[in-house]
């Protein structure tokens, strides 16, 4: 039970935030339009998903930056910062439906692909470029014919929107089908590429593309929920590094921007040297003396 607690939380959260069943019924109202849509969910979740009860934080940020009479996006940015400062990338590991889907696809028993460390390291920076250019830069500075910008990431890249919004809406609403064109085919190609990659590489979207993960990663080193290493208990066996699916070395970098807080290393450590800390969580005795890495 405890072993599967993260999966239970991921699935439960996915259902909870996409519980608008009417949206999935043919001929029903396509998407939820109630008051909860004022609030963003913490993970990637397209607000055009027929079941979505909340707003997508990345879509909302772009929409705020797109506006013709643009103001500083206090609401969305404040929300994202608060979530990032408190949770860091804990959200990626526990409360992201698309992350769960990637993990499930990776369970398909086929030979797995190991990206060479150098290339993997370089590709990890791509998500920060996506955040800076497609989510912030272009929506902020590019203006179309009528003075409004475009949500570049949502429009040209986001496979989450295609999977959770595009595919079900097109299947359930015949009126949308005549409008399908190059853009839909482009986004479907990205989605298929992404889902195929997930079978061979652990969470490739989270590792290399996700702008939300990149945003939360900026706060990982100072977040309230964090990981600590009891240097007195650690025997330097390297098991935590071997176990980490995100290829982090928790002993050296327990609060690496790449860590999604899945807790695999904590479970794997035979000496219980790794632990999560947060409000109300006691630190190791050694940590209290300052002999720990964080």
């Amino acid at each position: 039970m405890v072993k599967h607690i993260r999966k239970i939380v991921q699935i439960g959260w996915g259902f909870l935030t996409n519980a608008y069943v009417k949206g999935f019924l043919p001929g029903g109202q396509a998407i939820y339009t109630g008051a909860l849509k004022r609030f963003c969910v913490p993970g990637m979740n397209c607000y055009s998903c027929p079941g979505a009860l909340g707003a997508c934080p990345i879509g909302s940020l772009q929409a705020a930056l797109n506006e013709r009479h643009r103001k500083f996006p206090f609401y969305v940015l404040g929300y994202l910062m608060a979530v990032g400062v408190f949770f860091g990338r804990f959200i990626c590991g526990w409360l992201c439906l698309f992350g769960l889907l990637q993990e499930l696809l990776y369970k398909i028993p086929v030979p797995k692909l190991t990206i060479p460390e150098k290339i993997d390291h370089m590709l990890r920076y791509l998500k920060y470029v996506v955040l800076a250019v497609l989510v912030i830069g272009l929506p902020l500075f590019y203006r179309g014919k009528y003075g409004a910008g475009e949500p570049f990431f949502c429009k040209y890249v986001c496979p989450v929107g295609t999977l959770e919004g595009g595919v079900p809406l097109v299947l359930l609403n015949s009126a949308l089908r005549p409008a399908l064109g190059f853009l839909f085919r482009w986004k479907m190609a990205i989605l298929i590429l992404c889902l195929t990659a997930c079978v061979f590489i652990y969470r490739p979207f989270c590792r290399y593309i996700c702008p939300l993960g990149a945003f939360y990663a900026l706060f990982q080193k100072i977040s309230v929920i964090r990981m600590t290493v009891d240097s007195g208990a650690c025997t330097d066996c390297g098991l935590c590094k071997k176990t980490c699916p995100m290829r982090v070395d928790p002993q050296k970098q327990p609060n690496s921007p790449e860590c999604i807080r899945c807790g695999e290393c904590v479970k794997a450590c035979p000496m219980h040297a790794l632990s999560f800390t947060g409000p109300g969580r006691k630190k190791h005795a050694k940590e209290k003396k300052g002999e720990y890495v964080s």
């Binding site: 004022r38 979505a52 707003a55 609401y75 949500p151 929107g161 986004k187």
Partner: peptide, 17 residues
């Protein structure tokens, strides 16, 4: 403003915009 965007189908997000 977030509500106005989220309560309508986002054509760009689903690949129709």
């Amino acid at each position: 403003a977030v509500f106005m965007k989220a309560a309508a189908i986002c054509m760009e997000c689903i690949g129709l915009g």
